[in-house]
Every structure is written in C-alpha cells, then in structure tokens.
Design a protein around this nucleic acid. Sequence first.
DNA 1: ATATTAATGTACGAACTAGTTAGTTTGGTC
DNA 2: GACCAAACTAACTAGTTCGTACATTAATAT
Lengths: 241, 241
Amino acid sequence: MSAKAKLRREMSAGSPSSSSLGDSLARQVGSKRTTPGRGHDPELTRQNILAVATKEFAEKGYSGARVDEIAARTNTSKRMIYYYFGDKEGLFVTVLEEAYRRIRQIEATLDLAHLEPEDAIRALVGFTFDYQNSNEDFIRLVMVENIHQGVHLARSRAIQDLNVSVIHTLRDIYDRGVSQDLFRKGIDEIDLHMTISALCFFNVSNRATFSQIFKRDMTAPEMLAKRRETVIETVIRYLKK
Amino acid sequence: MSAKAKLRREMSAGSPSSSSLGDSLARQVGSKRTTPGRGHDPELTRQNILAVATKEFAEKGYSGARVDEIAARTNTSKRMIYYYFGDKEGLFVTVLEEAYRRIRQIEATLDLAHLEPEDAIRALVGFTFDYQNSNEDFIRLVMVENIHQGVHLARSRAIQDLNVSVIHTLRDIYDRGVSQDLFRKGIDEIDLHMTISALCFFNVSNRATFSQIFKRDMTAPEMLAKRRETVIETVIRYLKK
DNA sequence: ATATTAATGTACGAACTAGTTAGTTTGGTC
DNA sequence: GACCAAACTAACTAGTTCGTACATTAATAT
C-alpha cells in the first residue's frame, strides 16, 4: 500500500475529528476532503504538497530547496508536484501566495473600527508582532523572495491585491486619530505601515545573526514581551502629537 | 596570455594611479600589490576572488551562488578558490567577515563623543541609514546568512567581536542623554540598537516585495530622504522624555 | 459494461555542480 | 643554472538535481 493510500485510510476510518489534528501541517492538512470516499483526492494531494513545500522553501531558501526532498516528505510522488504546479518556480509562487493570503485573511477579521485610534494602533501593531513571531515560515519566505528580487511575486496578481487592504485600515485609524487631535498631521500611511513592518519583521528575520552577536535568545517569552512593548511604544510615540 | 597575466600587466604598466579606479571592485581591487614585479600576486588574487564572490553571494544567495560562475568572473581559476578558501563555505565566511569589517571600521571613525546626545543619535542613525542604503550587498549577505540560521557567522569569532563596539558607543550617548535629563530612563541599549537596525535594514532588505506591493520606488532620492527623516524622528521620539 | 478523462507511480536522463587530480609556471635562493 | 616552494591551470569525477517519458489506476459519463 502506498503512503498516500495509507493517509486516505487514516482519514476515512476512525473518529470523524481526527486525533492527529495537532500534527504538523506537513503530515496532514486540515482541509476537508472535497469528495469523501474517493480514492483519488486531488485537493488533499495539492494541500499536502504545499504544506511540505512551504517548510522546505522557508527552511532552505529557493535554490537550497530540493524538489526531490519535498516529494519524499509528501504522501505522494514528485510527479504530482509537476502535475499540479508545473515546475519548481510555480510551486514556490503558490507557496508564497498562500502564505500572504493567510496573514491578510486573519488581519481582515481584526475589526479595529470600533476601537479608539490609539487602541486600534496598539491592537494592529500587537497583532502584526505576534503573527510574525509565531509564523517564522512566512517571514522567511518573504526574505527568500526579496533575495530573488521579487520575481515570483511579480508573477502573482493575487498577492498584490491582498496587501492593499492593510493600508486602508491604517488610513482609517490614522484619520480618526488626526481629527481627534491625537495624532500629528502629515504622516504618510505607507510610511507608517513600513515602520510597523520593519519593527516587527526584523525581530524574526534577523534572529540568527542578531542573537549570535549580542547573545540574546530572541525567542524567549520575556524577551519577546519586552520587545513587543518597545515596538508598540515606538509606533505610538511616532504618531502622537 | 592568461587573463591574470593581462591584469598584472595592466597594473604594472601605465600611470601609477590607475585610471580604472572607478571600475567595479570585482574587476580590480584597490589593495596595493604586496610584492611588486612578481608574476604571482597572491593578495591580488585573493582580493579579486573575494570581490567577485561578494557580488555573487549577495545576488544569488548561498545556495544559488555557483563556484564555477565566481571562478569564471575572476581573473584566476576555480582551483584558486579552493586553494585560498578551502571550500564554498570557507569562501562565504570570509566574504561575510569582510563585509562586517567594512561597516564597523567606518562606524568607528564617526567620533560622536563630542556631539550633544540628540545630535549624536541623529548622526549615528543617519550614518546607519545611509551606509545600509548604499551598501545593498552587505544587507543581502546578512539576509542570506539569516536564511541559513547563522551557521557561518557562528564559525567566525572575528565578526562577533567587531559588533560589540556599537553597543558601547550607543550606551555612552544614551547615558549622557539621560544625565542631561533629555532621554527617558530604563531603555536597554541593545533594544535601542535593534530598533535602529530594524528601521534602516528593512528599507533595503524588503525593497523588492514592498515596492512591488505598494508601487513605490524605494531607491528614489526623494523617497529615501523622506524615509531617512522618518527613521531618525522615530528613534528620537522613542528616546525623548 | 465501456469509453474517456483525471490522477498517479516508476524509472530514467541530460545538465549541472562542488570539489579534486595531476601537473605546470614563476621568482627567488644557493 | 639547478632546485624549491608557492602560485597557478586544465581537465576530470562523482554525485546531484530538475524535469520527463511512459505506463497504470481510479472516477465519471454514456
């Protein structure tokens, strides 16, 4: 029996809410089966490949990632990677797309409109910090894409649309802050977004070199909490009158 | 005649101050010949390899860089890379070491002690911003090293020592600021350094994705000048009472 | 039942890639 | 001018890596 068949069996047999739900995405994706009872399950196969590929690309970069290695960790074969994604680049683009989609999707549910401007900023920055810190894969994929001059992102219309919404949210909060005479005038929202991104991103992206040079474990909870406060405080102080 | 021999000839013949000084480092390094008149010039060869390798690693990442490609762009042969640097990793470690050495060396000449605390911070942040923006290679090498979890940096005692001095400079300025009642108490200097680094680094490291998503040319002079001001202002506002 | 299409597995190959082998050139020394 | 060590080269090797040709199985429509 193939590994794929084994996975199928595990999913159809046993309790409906799988006990292995806590397992890594790479081993079993959370998506519901599109067509229960089918021997062939394209969506499951696709998701399984994507989950494994995300790990591999985030860990080793685009050039360092090996298609054979991804295939080996999959419940299916290398042939399926080429069947669904065309080539290594197509696979990477999809991985990147999905990663962006995930963060923007959660971000969209934040509902900051009902908060006071300062609290809204605190919430947004706090969320960004937390999300990026607990989703190192996303950060690393973005780093990898930047090393490659954004050539893959350029090929994906989808990603570009996704990201503009953040700016609208930010603009809304900022405008309210200005009209309440809390925030300074003349601040550009993209500039502000950049400041927030920079402060949150660096913490994860430069973990390795920074912690080695300054002997600090940047993943330690106390460290993280302190840094989180600093980042929020920095942004607030930049905005306030 | 070999390419190497050609280069030698170009350097020994002609005017003493070479007219090709403006050429890329990759084609001719600035170092003086250690042993004038020799057909073999080890230091020149070494520097030539390093200059080419710096470009290649910065451009394509560690795994994406090709030893053969580096060799081809060199005035010497692939064998010499292995002769002087052992292997690909040894070459990368040396490239990284040299890149860190360059920035810290210039940084050390800044002489901020005679400036008022606020001006000193402005000068330091301004310098960091300018240096990082005009030395994209350095930023990219650090990104590459972070993608690889800092394994190469770990092997280099030299780099780690180099970086501690920044913290002392920062501590000195900060302490003066606090005793003059200009800066808030209780700010950790490594935390402060991280904020400065984050704000300056991101501008270069995430250029590709950021500018593509938000349609901004982050290398445009006006853009750069504006961002520079924002970064300095952000740091100052974080420090001030 | 049967034809048709979608999904999948196996095995392989052409091109590439880090590193090496075996030898040559160069300038200085005795 | 014979000899030596450092600097250097061309060609090669062993292993890797992306991608594909070909065969097969499962699902769906008729």
